[in-house]
Design a protein around this nucleic acid. Structure first.
Length: 520
DNA sequence: TGAAATGTTGGGGCG
DNA sequence: ACGCCCCAACATTTC
């Protein structure tokens, strides 16, 4: 049962398998692994001690150092890390390796299927503990289960630790014990749980193993990401600090404006666990608390309550992320299939040309095209633009939301199965607390409301730069002389709209009505 | 975390 | 002065 004693001088090392917790701070998986690794090797197998973050008793058998490992596992599953987010990942792993080296450790990189590499590492090192941050994607949940069994058969134990959620999904339920499927009562229930608190500081030193197992020598040089991004834990902390300083106070008012820098831009950092939502939560709360309300009305009070409202709104957005993870945990079929059965028979179109136009940002609707081009160019899209572009695919083109989800998955640096699934099912009207199907975004009105000066469209659809703002979101309605003056030949420099929105809306409503009448 | 269609109201122009 | 119409502005309903 035990590994060969010759391979574990000074005790067996602990494997810290980092997956989506690429950070040293606030990392309960790291805390557990460190506790196990620091445990005196003389502690007998019968001595048990409680270890924080583990949720149960563990037996200390450590003393052999800590081996942080990342497994590059391309996998075969449809939801394997997308191309854009792999770019971010390589940068993040480089940053993590540097951080680990500052602690006298390093990041071991292995390539291959995790269910081969992890047992192989256990065999090579004599490790008897594998500590991993918990993942919620159905394919990972299933594989972790079989992996834990496989490790058990070779005398090792796997611990998965919740690192990236504010609340344990099992601790949030309706009165009759079922998962919430509407956000408002869900969030109310969450807010009655103990307030999430930021966790531990990053350790100064990590105990080295007596011998490092073989690993991939170098991480292949990553493709550059836009310079506004700084993947890694330090970049995440800087981003949060900048957001708190520059944009939190105005968040409530500005967050829906893709033309303004009003959002946190934390999404890729959260996706890879370079920062924990608990840390974000705690720092937002601290920011509000340091600016107490004044007893008498004054401009300062207005500013303060504006910050308080904005903070609540921002925390609620963290709540939507949380909701997405909890829903994925409870409804594992939703990345592929609608949550509500009756949507399975929705009469989607088959329109390869429409899909291609949408992907390329050539729909003829400026706000949609701006969003899609921002996505292609940067791997990120403003949330308002995501909603508008998604609504266009699903309700104007009547293309299946799964096609949109797959495209976003490939192209977003913050691709996150839980968030992606919730967002698309919300748009399609098939998911939890979804927009009613008849709620159809008008891309012209959305553009005029949320990009009123047209800066966003002009930035990403430069061929429209000289179109006067009153026509910018509806260039096909502009008089010929206005377009001539702007140097725009519709249908040549920029497409005419690929659908008539009013007609498309009626068709979408008809499709929805057909669904309501059909059984199931 | 919509938009369009429909209904209501009230002010002003006008005969 | 008064009633009538028009319609913008707002509210409600419907999809």
């Amino acid at each position: 049962m035990a590994a060969d004693p010759d391979t574990q001088q000074g005790g067996a090392p602990v494997l810290l398998w980092l997956r989506r917790a690429l950070r040293l701070r606030d990392n309960p998986a790291l805390e557990l692994a460190l506790t196990l690794a620091n445990a005196d090797g003389s502690v007998g197998a019968g001595d048990r001690g409680r270890v924080a973050g583990c949720g149960g008793d563990v037996t200390a058998v450590g003393g052999g150092g800590l081996i942080p490992v990342y497994v590059m596992d391309e996998g075969t599953n449809r939801w394997t890390t997308g191309a854009a987010s792999r770019r971010w990942l390589s940068h993040s792993l480089l940053a993590l390796d540097l951080d680990l080296r500052r602690c006298g450790s390093r990041l071991l990189i292995r390539s291959g299927p995790a269910n081969v590499e992890i047992p192989a590492l256990v065999a090579e090192t004599g490790a008897r503990r594998v500590v991993a941050d918990r993942r919620w994607e159905p394919a990972w949940v299933a594989r972790d289960r079989t992996l834990a069994d496989a490790l058990g058969r070779i005398g090792a134990q796997m611990h998965t630790v919740i690192t990236n959620l504010l609340f344990d999904p099992e601790s949030v339920a309706t009165r009759d014990g079922r998962p919430f499927t509407t956000f408002t009562p869900y969030w109310r229930a969450c807010r009655q749980l103990p307030e999430p608190g930021a966790g531990s500081d990053a350790p100064d030193r990590l105990p080295e193993p007596s011998r490092w197992p073989r690993g991939q020598e170098t991480i292949s040089p990553p493709i550059a990401v836009p310079e506004t991004w700084e993947p890694g834990e330090r970049g995440a902390a800087r981003r949060l600090a900048a957001f708190l300083e520059d944009a939190l106070a105005g968040y409530d008012a500005v967050r829906d404006r893709p033309d303004l820098p009003g959002t946190s831009l934390l999404s890729p950092h959260l996706t890879f666990g370079e920062i924990s939502p608990a840390r974000v939560w705690a720092e937002v709360q601290a920011r509000v608390a340091t600016r107490p309300r004044e007893p008498v009305p004054s401009p300062a009070t207005a500013r303060t309550s504006q910050t308080a409202d904005s903070a609540q709104r921002f925390l609620m957005e963290l709540g939507w992320r949380e909701f997405a993870y909890h829903l994925l945990h409870h409804f594992s079929h939703t990345p592929e299939e609608p949550l509500h059965e009756r949507f399975a028979s929705f009469p989607w179109e088959d329109d390869p040309e429409g899909l291609a136009a949408w992907r390329q940002g050539l729909t003829g609707f400026p706000i949609v095209d701006a969003g899609m081009r921002q996505l292609a160019a940067t791997g990120w899209m403003h949330n308002r633009a995501r909603m508008v572009a998604a609504s266009f695919l699903v309700k104007d083109l009547l293309l299946p939301w799964q096609e949109g989800a797959a495209w976003f998955w490939r192209n977003l640096v913050d691709a996150d199965l839980a968030n992606n699934t919730l967002g698309w099912q919300w748009t399609a009207g098939s998911g939890a607390d979804a927009a009613p199907y008849f709620r159809v975004f008008n891309p012209v009105l959305q553009g005029e409301r949320f990009d009123p000066g047209g800066d966003y469209v002009r930035r990403w659809v430069p061929e429209l730069t000289d179109v006067p703002t009153p026509w910018l979101h509806r260039p096909w309605e502009a008089p010929a002389e206005v377009l001539a003056e702007a140097g725009l030949r519709l249908g040549i420099d920029y497409p005419r709209p690929i659908v008539d929105h009013a007609a498309a809306r009626r068709a979408a409503l008809a499709a929805f009505n057909s669904l309501k009448r059909s059984p199931g």
